[in-house]
Structure formats: C-alpha cells, structure tokens
Amino acid sequence: MADFWKRLGEIDRRIIFVLIALAVLVPLALKLAFPIPVGKGPSKDFFDSVDSLPPESVVLMSFDYDPSTKPELHPMAIAIVQHLMSTDVNLVAMALWPQGASLAQEILVEISDSLGREQYHDWVNLGYKTGGLVLIARLGSSMKAAFPTDLSETPYGQIPMLDGIQRLCDFDMIITLSAGDPGIPHWVMVASDQLGVPVGGGCTAVSAPQFYPYLQRRVGERPQMEGLLGGLRGAADYEALLRRKYAQAPPGTAIAGMAAQSVAHLVIMVFIVLGNLSYLALRKRKEGQR
C-alpha cells in the first residue's frame, strides 16, 4: 500500500498530460453544455458601461492580442463588436500588437457586413503601430501623427467619421482587449489616469487578478477601469448578458468551451487531492517509523 502512495506521488507527468487532453477533447467532441449564471461583478459592470453608451458615441477599441490568446480574447471581441454595431456606436479599431490589426479586420468586416454597417462611417480600422506606452502617450496629443493612414492606407483626413477626433480625449470610451504588454496597464496609465477617458476591456484570465486594483470604486470618483472581462468565463458572461438583453444576438463559442473547461478543472483538482493524499500517507508512515 505504501508503495502505491509513493508511486502515486511521483506519477509520470505524461500520464497527467494524457488525462488533461482527454478531459478537453471528450466534452468538446460530445458538445456538452452547462448553464452560465452571471451575477454582479466586473463582467456585468463592463457590459453595463458599454450598454449605456448613447448612440453616435465614438469608441476606440484596441486589439492588443495575437493569435496565441485568440481562444480567450477573440470571443470577447466578437461579442463586443456585435454589441457596439447593433447599438449604433461608432467604432475606431487599432492595435498595439502587430497581429491584432488583422484579427480586428476579420471581425469588423464580417459583423459589419452582417449588420449592414459602413466602413469609414460606422467603423474604421487604423491598424497597428509599435511603441506601447509611448504610442498611447502620442495618441493623447495627436491621433493623426501616429496613424497618418488607416490599415488600407486611406489618409486619416479623408475618413469622414474621424472628423473631430483628434486625440484620445475625443473618445467616449476606450476598450482594450489585452493579452499582456503593451495592454491594459498602459491604457489605464495614460488614457484613464492622465486623460480621464473611461477605459474598460478584457484580458486573459491569467492577468485579470493584477487588474483588480484598477476596478475599485469609491464614492464620487471614477474607477481606473469601468469593468473587466477575464478569460473565457468573462467572454461567456458577456455572451450570456448580450443574449439575455438582445435575443437576436447569435450564439458565441465561449459558452460551448465552458463545459470542457469544467471537466479539465475537475481533473486537475482530483490530481491535487491525490497528490496530497499520497503526501499525507507517506508522512504518516514516516512518523510511524520514528
């Protein structure tokens, strides 16, 4: 028996790998689904602040991620763009990450076509520029200096919806979908802290905890961030809220993924329990021998 506990404690990690793979593949292949309960919290705050934007306001949406975090951030981006475009909010897209620009384009074109929105009147994609914090600081004084043209090289001045948009202060809200550096902290530092433009957004689940301090609300003062979507759960929350409010919103991929997620979590937790059982059994034996 003691041998069993010892072997269990030092199990080859490749066995864990196989079980994790199965935990994800099987629920996906069988298309399991769980209900998503959404209560008050950062996801709801974010949804509400986007939902309360009046028609014709202008939102800057920065796609600060790349394909490696696509599974988490892309479903959010789709749901948010869907939301903005169906409520007549004008959308200016940009990216602090090079590959973000084309990811944005993919979503914008598809959703704008399906909802009959018009490029350069309802939305524009300015593309990617390097520089992170430095670039954001530059946008604070001049959008045009940093983005002389949009993604398809149309000069800034020839884009009708950008009339009157000269710098970050001219936006009603900034939404950043952020996979890391540069991302949320930089937008908060410049746009929210220095310029006072409301900032909200989504991030990978991993980085969400470090942004919790930005969410704290005190009476009579704006929080550093309006709200936050964390990872796939955040995306699923947003999808659920969107569908609750606008029944015609198409179903997203985040809700489906939550089932696989749950099973994989269970597998990891079972392993943690097994590891501790083995540890405790061995320790008891050692104490018994003494």
Binding site: I11, R13, I16, F17, I20, A21, V24, S68, T69, A264, V267, I268, F271, I272, L274, G275, N276, Y279, L280
Partner: peptide, 19 residues
Amino acid sequence: MFSLLAFFVASAAFRAFRA
C-alpha cells in the same frame, strides 16, 4: 506553444500544491 501551458499548469499544480 501557448496551449502547452494547460499541461504544464496541471503538472505544476500536482507537484507543488502539497499541504
């Protein structure tokens, strides 16, 4: 490469989280 983390997170949790 990024998704390798799903496996590594599991093995690290199993090994490191002992009371």
